[in-house]
């Protein structure tokens, strides 16, 4: 069914972090622990779905010339709601480590890009499913990165210690570790993409020299 196909496209084929390479700022900043990564992805997904639905519902009312400021205000409103809910219901530690990156969801290229490319041009149902699909992809990406960084950098997973003998490399939970992890992961995904693409050896017009003409009998 088209729902399943759309979800898969948003999550895998056009994964926002590893394929489109969008919205990297919060991805690298909050993935220090899995809990943080999880809540950031949940917040971003909720904002994405909500703004996709509203923009899709209003798409005939929004003139093309001022669509960017309209998107901005709609997304900002939902981000404010998300921020207030998180401040009210999530533990203090999570809010403090997420810091300014919750309001920064408003300039997350993923949400902007989906609004521009998808919600503005498609119906409500499609936009909703697309938002959920991209959100799932984003959640997966954040969990992967934060899992690696927490395990290698703090020696824990979800707060529980993982190894007994390996002293954690604190660099992984700091800035350089983040860049290292994303660089290597992008390289791995690129390699997967390249190997999947079957590369036919491209043949083009090559001149026949006297040697080749002598070796091969002329075929008309």
């Amino acid at each position: 069914m088209w729902v399943y196909r759309e979800l898969l496209r948003g999550a895998v084929k056009e994964n926002p972090t590893f394929v489109l390479v969008l919205g990297l700022c919060p991805t690298l900043a909050v993935t220090v622990t899995i809990v943080n990564g999880f809540w950031m992805a949940v917040a971003a997904t909720c904002v994405l779905v909500a703004s996709n639905v509203i923009i899709s519902a209003c798409r005939r009312l929004i003139p093309s010339e001022i669509r960017i400021p309209c998107f901005v205000v709609i997304i900002a409103s939902f981000v404010t709601i998300a921020e207030m809910l998180m401040k009210a219901y999530l533990p203090d530690a999570v809010n403090r480590s997420l810091g300014i990156f919750v309001p920064l969801i408003v300039v997350n290229c993923i949400i902007f890009g989906q609004a521009e490319a998808y919600a503005y041009k498609n119906g409500i149902a499609r936009s909703l499913v697309d938002g959920i699909g991209v959100g799932i992809g984003y959640l997966g990406a954040l969990l992967l990165i934060s899992g690696i960084r927490e395990a290698l950098g703090a020696g824990t997973l979800l707060g529980m210690p993982v190894w007994s003998t390996y002293p954690p490399a604190y660099i992984m939970v700091m800035a350089p570790g983040a860049f290292l992890v994303i660089g290597i992961l992008l390289g791995i995904f690129n390699a997967l993409k390249l190997s999947r693409r079957r590369r036919q050896p491209r043949a083009a017009a090559a001149p026949l020299t006297s040697r080749e003409m002598a070796a091969k009998p002329e075929t008309a």
């Binding site: 026949l208 020299t209 006297s210």
Partner: peptide, 12 residues
């Protein structure tokens, strides 16, 4: 092309 002994001229 046919007479060149080293294959220095090519015919596309």
């Amino acid at each position: 092309v046919a007479v060149c002994p080293t294959g220095a001229i090519g015919d596309y």
